[in-house]
C-alpha cells in the first residue's frame, strides 16, 4: 500500500468547513449522507479519509468500496466491521479497522478478527497512551488515534505512543498546527 495517512486528520461533518491546507494535514469525513459525501469529494482541498460507518446511505459491499475508490477518489477509509474493512482494502483503499479501546479483553477480541492488510483506528484515541506497550505494538499499522483528543498534550502523547496519525476537531486545529510537526 503506497498511501500514507496524513499526520493530522481534521474531523468534519456535513456542516463543517474546510481547514486551511497545510503539510501533513487531511480531513476525516463522518456524519454525512452519501449525497453530501459525493459533494465533498468533488474538489477537496486536502486528502480525504472517510469513516464509512458514519455515511448514511452507503452500502457495505464491494460495489460501495469500489465507488469510493474509483468514483470519489477516496484513498483511505475506516470501518468498525472487519468484513467491510477487508472489502475497502480489496478496492485499493487504505483501510483501517476501528477498534474500541474499552478494555484489554475487548481489544484482544477485536485483534483476532482484524483482516490482513488493514490498519487500525483506535477509539477513543485519547486512550492509546494508556494501553500496555505490548498491546500497542500488536496493533496493525498504520495506526490512527481517533476520538476525544482535544489538547496538544494528548496529541503529543499519541504520537509518542506510536500513532502514525491523530484525528482532532477543527476547533483544536490552530493550536495543534503551532505545536505539532505535521510533516509526513
Amino acid at each position: 500500500m503506497d498511501v500514507a495517512l496524513p499526520r493530522l486528520l481534521v474531523v468534519r461533518g456535513a456542516a463543517g468547513s474546510w481547514p486551511e491546507p497545510g503539510p501533513g494535514l487531511g480531513i476525516l469525513i463522518r456524519d454525512v449522507t452519501l449525497e453530501t459525501l459525493t459533494e465533498l469529494c468533488a474538489a477537496p482541498p486536502l486528502p480525504l479519509t472517510v469513516d464509512v460507518d458514519q455515511v448514511e446511505g452507503l452500502g457495505s459491499d464491494l460495489a460501495a468500496a469500489r465507488f469510493l475508490a474509483g468514483r470519489l477518489g477516496v484513498r483511505s477509509a475506516i470501518s468498525r466491521r472487519p468484513g467491510r474493512a477487508a472489502l475497502l482494502a480489496e478496492a485499493g483503499i487504505l483501510a483501517l479497522l476501528r477498534i474500541g479501546a474499552l478494555d484489554s479483553t475487548g481489544i484482544e477480541r477485536a485483534l483476532a478478527t482484524s483482516p490482513t492488510g488493514v490498519g487500525t483506528a483506535i477509539s477513543p484515541g485519547v486512550a492509546l497512551p494508556h494501553l500496555e506497550a505490548g498491546l500497542r505494538s500488536r496493533l496493525p499499522r498504520p495506526l490512527l488515534a481517533y476520538g476525544l483528543i482535544r489538547t496538544r498534550a494528548e496529541v503529543a502523547a499519541c504520537f509518542a505512543s506510536g500513532a502514525d496519525s491523530v484525528a482532532i476537531r477543527i476547533e483544536d486545529l490552530d493550536s495543534q498546527r503551532r505545536k505539532v510537526d505535521t510533516r509526513v
Partner: peptide, 12 residues
Amino acid sequence: LPGVILPHIRDL
C-alpha cells in the same frame, strides 16, 4: 469505559 480516560473527559 475506558475508565483511564476519565481525567481527559471529566468536563464532558
